[in-house]
Design a protein around this nucleic acid. Sequence first.
DNA 1: TTTGTTTATTACCGATTAGTAGTATAACAA
DNA 2: TTGTTATACTACTAATCGGTAATAAACAAA
Lengths: 132, 132
Amino acid sequence: MTLSSPVLPASSPDDDCRFVRLSPETLQLVADFFKVLSESSRLQIVCALKTGQKNVTEIIEATGLGQANVSKHLKILAQAGIVNRQQQGVCVYYQIASGFVFELCELVCDSLSAQIQQQSEKIARLEAFRQA
Amino acid sequence: MTLSSPVLPASSPDDDCRFVRLSPETLQLVADFFKVLSESSRLQIVCALKTGQKNVTEIIEATGLGQANVSKHLKILAQAGIVNRQQQGVCVYYQIASGFVFELCELVCDSLSAQIQQQSEKIARLEAFRQA
DNA sequence: TTTGTTTATTACCGATTAGTAGTATAACAA
DNA sequence: TTGTTATACTACTAATCGGTAATAAACAAA
């Protein structure tokens, strides 16, 4: 199951460039998904849920964010399919819908680390050159 | 090379939850990276560069975006380390810095496809239930 | 020099959004 | 019923951001 859904074009086997042919509408969907993850408050909430489901109050305590704020962000995360909502009596519990989010975040972390590593090596070389 | 850089905490071998322990500052870095990819115009530019390097004029033609707009987005993409800048005479050529971006986008595409697939199956079941 | 081309930058407008205070609603307990 | 707790919702403000027109700078060609 990759890109065989009705709205996303199918990829041919000998084509490693399927992302190039995506329509503007599909790109907008992808961009919208990235936008959900482009707010540190929402990433904080996602992190707080990594160890298991939490209700809203527990999320508020874990993140230090305001109640209305958390509620708003949870709605956005739920609409994006990143978290699931489950009512249990008075409380509403939220949990990560798929570990996929963490895959994404760790890929970005790795990339950022590599980038920073490269930059510091470049600076070190420049420094060595300046000394000589 | 994963998270051994100075600013990002190292992960212990038996820990598959390194993302949980990231500091707010690191989360902000990750969020900022996602924000760069959260605009369909920038994704269009990335797509246009998938087949190889292009100068600004070629990118403008490929995407249909305005010149000032493309220039601004290219600056943002370059600052994020997603594209590389290379001056060749009068023209400035840009190219994708790492195929990593496409990995990310295709992961999101796959996830969105799966999501849409699930939703249409759910609707189909509801429809079948309504008919009966 | 003058003209045209390529790219970057600045200033501005309109739209979006994060955070918050206040309010509403729903479930439960006393 | 009354009060309390948990969550959601509704303006509202301040800040951010995308798109664009205008300008500038660098360079090539006539």
